[in-house]
């Protein structure tokens, strides 16, 4: 059984009639995900890949049962879409990028109040291998195995997951927590779940410059994680003060450099790969 989601998971898609929403609804369904309904205001009565579309989350849930929503809604409307899903009792995966930080803060606050899980924003989503995929990760990169993967990046996650697969290893659950400074579940939340998950025997952590998320993850690993962890930090050669795409990937202080993160992880007994291609090699060596 995957962490957060499994083969019983039912989800709706908000922003299902948009370009990305409809494309990835098809791919999620092709992966075996149970997408029960879609939501786009004003488009009720249509369907996308045989999935019925409703104007509101409430209307969708009157006719279907679900636990999750995957949000593809454009940034200016993402907050109200998230509020709508959270208030209807759903956990959410927010794929949308460029959401204003004050909006994200409010989404996280709302989720905390309602005790719901948020993954993202600005993330590729979550895949419980061979069970359920919520988000936009490419279907073909996964193989069932014993490695749990948690990452702040999108495409870099695919890269490393692909290499783990190519070396004959596989994954349990892959979680992309997103690249924004304000996000839902963080490294620590996911590490905690992997530690408890019987199927996960070892863990890959993919971080990047900016923020102190990896340093806090290292502190947590030292105290609470008994399973082996292998890490990679992107941006080792990035000049400080330059914003490298993600809102999060900008070095403001010493704790935010690749070196500080690498040192903290090494001190917690985590080998840190120099190159993304070394992660799978380290796992193969028995980490």
């Amino acid at each position: 059984m995957g962490i957060f989601i499994n083969k019983k998971t039912r989800s709706i898609v908000q922003g299902i009639t948009g370009k990305h929403g409809s494309f990835h609804t098809r791919l999620m369904r092709a992966y075996g995900t149970n997408i029960v309904a879609g939501v786009t205001p004003g488009k009720e009565g249509r369907d996308v890949d045989t999935v019925s579309v409703y104007n509101t989350v409430k209307a969708a849930l009157r006719n279907h049962k679900a636990e999750w929503s995957v949000i593809f809604v454009p940034a200016p409307f993402a907050k109200s879409a998230a509020f709508e899903a959270l208030e209807a009792g759903l956990n959410i995966v927010i794929i949308t990028e460029n959401i204003p930080i004050l909006d994200s803060l409010q989404i996280m606050w709302k989720a905390k109040q309602l005790k719901r899980v948020v993954i993202g924003p600005n993330c590729p989503g979550i895949t419980s291998v061979d069970e359920c995929k919520l988000g936009i990760m490419p279907n073909h990169i996964f193989t069932r195995g014993d490695v749990g993967v948690v990452s702040r990046s999108g495409t870099l996650t695919y890269e490393i997951v692909h290499q783990i697969t190519r070396r004959g290893l596989g994954q349990t659950t892959v979680v992309g927590i997103g690249g924004d400074p304000i996000g839902g579940v963080d490294f620590v939340d996911v590490l905690e779940r992997f530690e408890q998950d019987a199927a996960t025997k070892r863990i890959v952590l993919i971080g990047e410059i900016g923020g102190d998320f990896e340093v806090r993850a290292a502190d947590y690993i030292k105290e609470h994680v008994t399973k082996p962890v292998v890490a990679y930090i992107a941006g080792q050669t990035a000049p400080p003060g330059k914003r490298m795409g993600h809102a999060g990937a900008i070095i403001m202080g010493d704790r935010e450099t690749a070196k500080a993160k690498t040192d903290a992880l090494a001190e917690a007994g985590v080998p840190v790969a120099k190159l993304p291609s070394e992660v799978a090699k380290l796992l193969q060596k028995g980490y």
Partner: peptide, 28 residues
């Protein structure tokens, strides 16, 4: 595409003895 992958690409070029002229993420 993707900030993380592009940063990792720069790191890799550097590791093999090259130097990147830029960071560019074409985005989603």
């Amino acid at each position: 595409n993707g900030a993380g992958l592009v940063m990792a690409t720069l790191d890799m070029i550097d590791a093999f003895g090259g130097k990147a002229a830029n960071f560019l993420d074409v985005g989603g």
